[in-house]
Amino acid sequence: MRSGPDADSLSQFEATISKIRISFLVNLREHRDNLGEMVEGILNNQNVFACLSQVGWIAHKIAGVAATMQLSELGLIAARTEKLVDEAVIDTSGEGLSTELLEAIGALYSQVCDACSKQVAP
């Protein structure tokens, strides 16, 4: 097994992570705008299935990396939203979207907006 990283590698790693974080925050703004449109579509009952798939996709992207970018809470809500969207997409009961799912999407959107407004990104 390889030995653990030395101090130089660690500081280099941290510098790289800072750069990645900046680009993640730029992407997050795009996600925020897309999410906003999708939420509007769902609320207005327009192309609900397509909007939901898009929300699931965005949630999936955020869930995979947010925690590593020191945004653990955002990562958790994204993972939960993704799971609920997946369940809703395969649900054939025809009962419409659950309150739990709508709340999760709302919470995700609000967390993304929050992260975008608090974080300094170019």
């Binding site: 990283p5 590698s9 660690l10 790289t16 992570i17 990645i20 680009s23 995979g64 990396v65 590593t68």
Partner: peptide, 18 residues
């Protein structure tokens, strides 16, 4: 397909000498 994830994985692998 996620460029952030790709960069993170590359950084993690570099950190461990790959």
């Amino acid at each position: 397909d996620d460029l952030t994830a790709l960069s993170l994985l590359e950084a993690a692998l570099n950190l461990y000498g790959f």
